[in-house]
Nucleic acid binder design. Sequence first.
RNA 1: GGGCCUAUAGCUCAGUUGGUUAGAGCGCACGCCUGAUAAGCGUGAGGUCGGUAGUUCGACUCUACCUAGGCCCA
Length: 929
Amino acid sequence: MNYKDTIHLPSTGFPMRARLPEREPEILKFWQEASIYKRMIDARKSGETYILHDGPPYSNGNIHMGLALNKIVKDFVIKYRSMNGYFAPYVPGWDNHGMPIENNVLDEFRKGGIEIDRLAVRKRCREYAKRFVDIQREEFKRLGVLGEWDNAYFTMSPLYESEILRIFAKLVQRGYIYRDLRPIHWCTTCQTALADAEIEYKEKRSHSIWIRFPLHQDPDGIFGGDKEGSYAIVWTTTPWTIPANLAVTVRPDFEYYVVKKGSERYLIAKALFRETAKELGWKEEEIKIVKRVRGDELANLVFRHPIFDRPSPVLEGDFVTADQGTGIVHTAPGHGEDDFRIGKQYGLRILSPVDEEGRFTSQAGERFAGLDLQRGNEEVLAALTEAGNLLKQDVFEHQYPYCWRCHSPLIFRTTPQWFMNVDHEGHREKALAEIEKVKWVPSESYERIKAAIQTRPDWCLSRQRFWGVGIPAFYCNDCGEAILDADLVNRTADLVKEHSADFWFQPDVMKHYQDVACPKCGSKDLRPEEDILDVWFDSSCSSLIVCRNWEGLRWPVDLFLEGPDQHRGWFNVSLMTGLGAEDTTPYSTVVTNGWVVDHEGKAMHKSLGNYISTKDIVDHYGADVLRLWVASSEFTRDVRVSQEILDRVIDAYRKIRNTLRFLLGNLADFDSEHRIEVEKLPPLERYILHELHKLIAKVRDGFDSFAYHHAFQAIYNFCSVTLSSFYLDVLKDTLYTRAKNSERRRAAQTVMAEALDKLIRVLAPLASFTAEESYRSSPLEKTEESVFLLSFPKVNPELEDRELAYEFSQLLTVRDEVLKALESERSAGNLKASIDARVNLAAKNEALANLLRKYEPQLAELFIVSQVDLVTWDETPEASRKDSLAIAVRKPKGEKCVRCWLWSESVGGHQDHPEICDKCYEAITDDQT
RNA sequence: GGGCCUAUAGCUCAGUUGGUUAGAGCGCACGCCUGAUAAGCGUGAGGUCGGUAGUUCGACUCUACCUAGGCCCA
């Protein structure tokens, strides 16, 4: 008889080879056609609401690893919450306005020789954005991210645009918005403002001049009372900004020297004294340090402008460095970022005497008015020389900003802009108090947002661009007054809702505002503002707009989850508008995901050749591999990705998949009616249930604290160690050779069914495709059509059995020792398979000996050997003893059963089946009835 | 230059308030099985905790500095 036909080998349609790239799209199709997202959400309608508000990615280019990571984690959150009974709808969105798209479109227009017309550009930008939304939406869906993809939000939708204006109106009405000058990078050739991203830095040869500022006031006697012949030395590379000089800045924590040279005294930072002296050709013997003083003691000094007769006071600023110059910095608030900020801080006026073409205006003084900057530089040098204040003139090579389009050097120039006053009515303090109440994950994230809010300047809301929401302000053509009125903004919002923000840019837009008059002079000759709102303002409104206009959502929300750059970005601006417009913080928890970096921890760049694309991973290995990579990583820190890392994830995937497959295959003949009650299960089975209970506790803990990698490792270890290498290996004999309906086999299947069910559920948010696939292949009774409609496993304390677990931990330690003994026999060539062994076992201490005796009938099974004989310690040969155990490997008694391959003295006891053992005989007999 | 952060075996991660020979899984090497088979099992070898200097009876765990890297700001 061929006994092989009588054993119960696993059987399942769940294939070993995943072939995810082909299989996943089918599952995707099922989710889509069966409206699984909608059903997942609807099924929990009565549950507690949990809102994760999606930060909108920019609709340009394909998605990259960072975006994939972010969306996958969000998907973990949504699926986990849903499976726990929360009503957790997910409305994804996109950020559409802004420069990258506008620039690409402008390039198209230029290359095509198309006339650049605002409305035409905007139309094309809209199409462009839509195209990439469609691309990215498909890419996100392919990752298995479930959400309202057909109900997503777009910052360029008319509704959204109009709502932006309503929030803006509220800020206007509450007095947050003001108009002021601000220095920006300006291209004098293109005659336009440039954003940071439009600047390229190149080497430039500039002037390098050392000049002196004569002392004007010295109330603290820093220079010892001699006003005449006392100076501060200043270094600069832009002589043309000298006419705009209004101050000099020192660093409060630097040490400064007053140096005497002949009859003159010079102020200079200690750290830069030597180099400066060398540059100026001062000889050791002719100079003498007459005073040392800290920067913060210089606060009351006032110098005189080196050309004009006007004061230039000393300010204290931390931006002063000791890299270059003299530690005393020429400060022209109209021509530099630092200069501007400190100028505002000290209440200086903003002087920017340069026009759009880069010519001095009359504000620069009669001598310079009308000169371009080239000639202006020369004339300033001449004026400095005449005044006797030019100490040295040289050339200097440094990195300098250039226009990316026309490649001419840029200048800083001030222009009027709209701002949000971040300190309006204690707004900043309120924000700082609010962030203390928010839960930040990881917790250090709080330090970052705090620093970002403490140091953030007023928010410049206006941009001189085309692709965005126009600021509905007016200018009086008669008196020049700027008019910004909340009611008019709201009125514009109504029109934008109907016509989109394009409305504002129509040539005849003013016909809608014929009733509006200049509040200053009464004139009705007005023109519309041409600037648009900063796109950060668009996205800062997203939580308010989306969560108040989409059905089922609510504001404020439970969770924001974005990359670390958003501390200064979206987390920050959302708080600014939320608090400004509604006195409410938009979020209660903020989770930050790390940056995706290469195997060395370096940022990935296509140009560096270390770039890995999500598409490649999905196409080669499947989305579940990408998802498990996310799940295996500590995603709140920077996350590494490399071929080796992916290879390990693929290994893990295979192990998990094969474990599921083995469970599925061995449950083919198992139905719920075969289930054995927990109390009747053998100890091994109850121990595995205890371990399963522990696994669920760990997994829940991981999910609850956004530590998915802990959940993943627990699952992986459970599959690999508890199941595959221990429990399932031990079980093979039972499963294959016992009678199908034997209680021992059904007990094993009961536990396997339980493990399979729980594994599928805990895997569902992580390896969604594989969880769904295995659920569909499962022979167990199905209550739902999709895994996402199932509940997430809860901790069941009744399955916990610490005493049993302790006993098994002892038994497993003994097992390890037995396996070592078997291995040494194997390497000595005395043994091949462990089932061909008999083990003689003795424990030195009484407690362990008792335990072994208690489990004696199970030991052979646990060790996967044919027989175990417990003997007394004294009987054991010295050589077999190791520590407190004695293990000897022997030849089994009896004969090898041809059916189960175990040795038994019962083989030969049945005449009708002379080659098999009792156990197999019973199995065959039982199976036949 | 500043702020925040990271640095434990080839990889991904654990390491509680500083305290015996630093853990896990995977990978790797060697071997077994051929009734999970492009699977399964076993055994074993790999870190002195980025570096340096301190504090301490004692530090992966505290302090300082340095190096490398990340995000942001300048």
